[in-house]
Design a protein around this nucleic acid. Sequence first.
DNA 1: ATAGAGGTTCTAGCGGTGCTAGCGTTGCGA
DNA 2: TCGCAACGCTAGCACCGCTAGAACCTCTAT
Lengths: 196, 196
Amino acid sequence: MSIQSRRERERAKRERLIITAARELAEAEGWEAVTTRRLAERVEYSQPVLYSHFTGKDAIMAAVAVEGFADVAAELRAARTAATDPRQALAAVSAAYAAFAEQRPALYEAMFSLATDLPFATPEAPAALHAAFGELREAVRPHAGDDDLGLLTETFWSSLHGLMTLMRGGRLPRENHDRRLAILVGRFSCPPADHA
Amino acid sequence: MSIQSRRERERAKRERLIITAARELAEAEGWEAVTTRRLAERVEYSQPVLYSHFTGKDAIMAAVAVEGFADVAAELRAARTAATDPRQALAAVSAAYAAFAEQRPALYEAMFSLATDLPFATPEAPAALHAAFGELREAVRPHAGDDDLGLLTETFWSSLHGLMTLMRGGRLPRENHDRRLAILVGRFSCPPADHA
DNA sequence: ATAGAGGTTCTAGCGGTGCTAGCGTTGCGA
DNA sequence: TCGCAACGCTAGCACCGCTAGAACCTCTAT
């Protein structure tokens, strides 16, 4: 019993080691530099050890992504609770989201571009993901007007995601990023009084 | 002179063949199935021939992407000019954009996710790209209010892009796509009367 | 007509990828 | 102390993008 539990502990520790090594390597040199050989070398085990913990490279990236959801949820929460009025809260949360994507590009990529088999808009999705989405939803809530809150949050989140993805891919010039963000917040914090 | 021009014609024809073969293969099986070996086999030449036309696989994808810009520009234009009032025009253009992304996922991916070395927001960008952006801009123009038209268009485009990428990646459920699109159009077709 | 020159295309291979079969070792349990 | 099971390793598979150099084919000039 004791021996087995010790082994399980060591296994879990090694699994954490793999995840953080993958994350560090990705943040330092990008995901294309994260090969199973380099990752194995970094954790000082052979390649097949990775496959005793994860079904494949995708699963490792998914594990890194789950870490990221917890991080972004915390930062969004901090931004939202520090704000005073609803409009400023939306702006602050947007800025926090953008800063996260900008400062941790590889992590962001794992969360929203790679790791395609992660469950998202279902109850099976990681708790941290629900937490992050919840922060966005609370920031959006005062601006819902007649719109469905969940769908509005998804739409706003998509807009933020689009801005960050296109900017990182060189599709949008970096210089006017703040102004674009302000425009987005302005449009979403204007609840359409009447749709007629 | 004649011989040389014939050779150039044949070369150009073969280049078109490569591009369309890459596009068809990508649309049929996704870009991960487009390997230089399979592509070469499909055009019935050996691999090195590809490299006598393009600097690498990235350049082939970029060529496919440029084709896509022309296509999407045409469809956006058709949607915009068929509309009667500004609000409906914005909705129609959005729907056309979404339909394009939905029906040609591989082409869309080449345009906006892969092919990272394409010049975008500069005069050197492909003419078809400017045309596509121009269609969006004209659809957005009546809704600009106090916002800068160019930046507003970029922001709106980002939102559309975010919706489509997240949906294609399984991050958003497909079912409420139309409602999200309607929310987006509603928010952007409501020019904020006062920012105070 | 024919030999040579030049350009074009092919075969073969390099170093890398994700992943895995199967062997050798190690350390626990009887 | 000995057998066995679990574990991690070496070695290798099929594939990737890409390229050097040989082979071939066409056009030119004698």
